[in-house]
C-alpha cells in the first residue's frame, strides 16, 4: 500500500525530527548547566575567543568595508533620483546597524568560526578525545563545549559592531570622498536618524541572539556528528546551512518585534 507507506514514512520522519529537537534542547540545557567552568576558569573561554573572534576579524572587516562601499554606490544612485543625496549617511548607517551588520556578520561568522567549531568537535569525537576526557572523569561539555559556546556569544556582537562601523566607513569613502556628498550632511543626517536605543541597542541584541544560535548549532552538529570523516564533513555543511536559515528566520521574528509600526 503506497498510501500507508507514505504515512508511515511521514510518521517516522516526524518522530525523528521531534527526537532530534529534544536531543538538541537537552544538549543546549547541558551547556548552560555546565557553564560554571567557562567563567571560573575564564582562561579557557579567552583561548576560544581568540579562535572564534580574533581569527574571524579579517573576513568581517574586509566584508564590512565592501558592503559599505556597495551600499554607498547603490544608495547614492537611488537617492539621487529623489534629490536627497544628503540622506546617504542615514541610509548606509541604518541598513548596517539594523540589518546588515548583525545578519551578514552572523552569516560570515557561521561559515568561518561555526564550521571550524563543528569540524573540531567532530574530529575530537571521532578520535575519541571526548570519550577519553569522559573516562578521565572530566566532563567534556563543561571543559570543551561550554567555553566555545560562550566565546561565540561574546565574539558575535563585537564582530557585528565592527562590521557596521567598517561598513559606515566604506559608505563614507564612496559617498563623501569619492562622489562628493557633503561631509556635514552625511554625518548629521545619520546622527539625526540613528537612534541609540532603537537602532544600535536593537542591533546588538540581534547579533547577540544570532551568536547564541550559531554557536549552539555548530557545537551540536559537531557533538552529534557520526565519528567518521564523512560524518564530520556532512556535519560541517549542515552547520552552515542550518545556521544561515536560522539566522534569517530569527531576523524576521526579531525585526517584526523590534521595528513594528515605529
Amino acid at each position: 500500500m503506497p498510501v500507508a507507506r507514505t504515512i508511515r514514512n511521514l510518521g517516522h520522519r516526524t518522530v525523528e525530527a521531534v527526537w532530534r529537537i529534544g536531543y538538541a534542547s537537552r544538549f543546549f540545557a547541558m551547556i548552560l548547566l555546565h557553564s560554571g567552568t567557562s567563567f571560573r576558569r575564564f582562561q579557557l573561554t579567552i583561548k576560544e575567543v581568540y579562535f572564534t573572534g580574533v581569527m574571524s576579524l579579517v573576513i568581517i572587516l574586509v566584508a564590512g568595508l565592501f558592503v559599505g562601499v556597495v551600499l554607498g554606490l547603490q544608495g547614492y544612485e537611488t537617492l539621487k533620483s529623489y534629490g536627497s543625496e544628503s540622506s546617504l549617511g542615514e541610509l548606509v548607517a541604518l541598513s548596517l546597524v539594523r540589518e546588515l551588520g548583525p545578519v551578514l556578520g552572523a552569516l560570515l561568522f557561521a561559515s568561518r568560526a561555526g564550521s571550524a567549531m563543528t569540524a573540531e568537535i567532530g574530529l575530537m569525537k571521532a578520535t575519541e578525545q571526548l570519550a577519553a576526557m569522559e573516562m578521565m572523569s572530566i566532563n567534556p561539555i563543561s571543559r570543551v563545549i561550554a567555553p566555545r559556546f560562550w566565546s561565540g556569544v561574546i565574539s558575535m556582537p563585537i564582530l557585528a559592531a565592527m562590521f557596521s562601523v567598517v561598513g559606515v566607513f566604506g559608505g563614507y569613502l564612496v559617498g563623501v570622498v569619492y562622489i562628493g556628498v557633503d561631509n556635514g550632511s552625511f554625518w548629521s543626517q545619520m546622527q539625526a536618524s540613528v537612534d541609540f536605543q532603537h537602532d544600535v541597542v536593537n542591533g546588538v541584541i540581534k547579533s547577540f541572539v544570532f551568536g547564541i544560535a550559531v554557536t549552539a548549532i555548530s557545537l551540536f552538529e559537531g557533538y552529534d556528528a557520526p565519528p567518521t570523516a564523512e560524518g564530520v564533513s556532512h556535519a560541517t555543511t549542515r552547520t552552515v546551512v542550518e545556521s544561515s536559515l536560522v539566522i534569517l528566520m530569527l531576523d524576521v521574528v526579531l525585526t517584526a518585534v523590534m521595528f513594528r509600526g515605529v
Partner: peptide
C-alpha cells in the same frame, strides 16, 4: 600573546560600539 590579542579584540569591540553610539547614532 593570546591574552593580548583577545584583549585588543574586546577593546576594539567596545570602541566600535562607542562609534556606533556617538558618531553614527545620536547618543551624544
Amino acid at each position: 600573546k593570546l591574552d593580548l590579542w583577545v584583549g585588543m579584540f574586546v577593546v576594539a569591540g567596545f570602541a566600535a560600539l562607542a562609534i556606533l553610539a556617538f558618531k553614527v547614532g545620536n547618543l551624544d
